[in-house]
Deep mutational scan, measured.
Amino acid sequence: MASQGTKRSYEQMETDGERQNATEIRASVGKMIDGIGRFYIQMCTELKLSDYEGRLIQNSLTIERMVLSAFDERRNKYLEEHPSAGKDPKKTGGPIYKRVDRKWMRELVLYDKEEIRRIWRQANNGDDATAGLTHMMIWHSNLNDTTYQRTRALVRTGMDPRMCSLMQGSTLPRRSGAAGAAVKGVGTMVMELIRMIKRGINDRNFWRGENGRKTRSAYERMCNILKGKFQTAAQRAMMDQVRESRNPGNAEIEDLIFLARSALILRGSVAHKSCLPACVYGPAVASGYDFEKEGYSLVGIDPFKLLQNSQVYSLIRPNENPAHKSQLVWMACNSAAFEDLRVLSFIRGTKVSPRGKLSTRGVQIASNENMDAMESSTLELRSRYWAIRTRSGGNTNQQRASAGQISVQPAFSVQRNLPFDKPTIMAAFTGNTEGRTSDMRAEIIRMMEGAKPEEMSFQGRGVFELSDERAANPIVPSFDMSNEGSYFFGDNAEEYDN
Score class of each variant (00 low, 15 high):
E11Y: 05
S467W: 02
T157K: 05
H135T: 04
K48C: 04
E375D: 02
E14R: 00
A233M: 12
I257L: 07
E24C: 06
D160L: 03
A278Q: 09
S383C: 15
T146I: 13
R216A: 02
D203M: 10
F412A: 06
M447V: 15
C223A: 07
Y97L: 07
S457M: 04
A411I: 07
W120M: 08
M371T: 08
K7D: 11
E11C: 10
T232D: 10
L276Q: 14
T171I: 05
T6Y: 11
E192S: 12
S402L: 05
L341K: 14
M105W: 00
Q58W: 07
E443L: 10
R221T: 14
D302E: 07
Q409S: 01
N397I: 02
R389I: 02
P283A: 00
K77G: 00
M481I: 03
R216N: 13
R213A: 04
E494M: 03
L133Q: 12
G5M: 09
R8C: 11
S176K: 08
A234I: 01
S482A: 10
L306G: 02
D290P: 05
W104V: 10
Q398I: 01
F420T: 01
G300S: 05
L264P: 01
L344T: 04
E11R: 04
A153D: 05
W386A: 15
T430I: 03
G200W: 03
A237N: 15
M481A: 03
K198E: 13
Q241G: 08
K184P: 04
S176V: 11
I265F: 12
T424Q: 15
I445F: 07
K113V: 10
V67E: 12
G249M: 10
P453T: 02
A179L: 09
Y97E: 13
G17R: 03
L341P: 12
S392T: 03
A286M: 09
P419D: 10
E210D: 15
T23V: 00
Q311S: 01
G94H: 08
T433A: 12
F346R: 15
A27R: 01
P161F: 04
R389P: 05
S326H: 13
V476N: 12
L466Y: 01
E469C: 07
A442S: 08
S170M: 14
N334D: 12
F489N: 10
M374E: 10
D128W: 04
S269Y: 07
L49C: 02
G295H: 10
E107G: 07
A263E: 02
N21R: 00
E449F: 08
L298R: 09
Y52L: 07
E81M: 13
L418E: 08
G300F: 13
A471T: 04
R118Y: 10
G37V: 04
R221N: 13
V109E: 08
N417F: 00
G282T: 08
R382M: 13
N144K: 03
K227V: 15
Q311V: 15
N124F: 06
P248Y: 07
G5D: 13
N334C: 05
R26F: 02
P419F: 04
R102G: 15
S486K: 10
N144P: 13
N125K: 08
L264T: 07
F291G: 06
S60R: 03
N211M: 00
N142A: 13
K452R: 02
W104P: 03
N250A: 15
E369F: 11
I63M: 02
S170R: 05
G209W: 11
L79F: 10
S28P: 00
T146H: 03
Y385W: 10
Y78C: 06
T45W: 04
D112Q: 03
P161E: 12
D421E: 04
F39A: 02
R26V: 10
R175C: 10
M137L: 02
Q364R: 13
F304Q: 13
G356F: 13
R382D: 15
R243F: 15
S413A: 02
E14G: 08
R342P: 03
I197A: 02
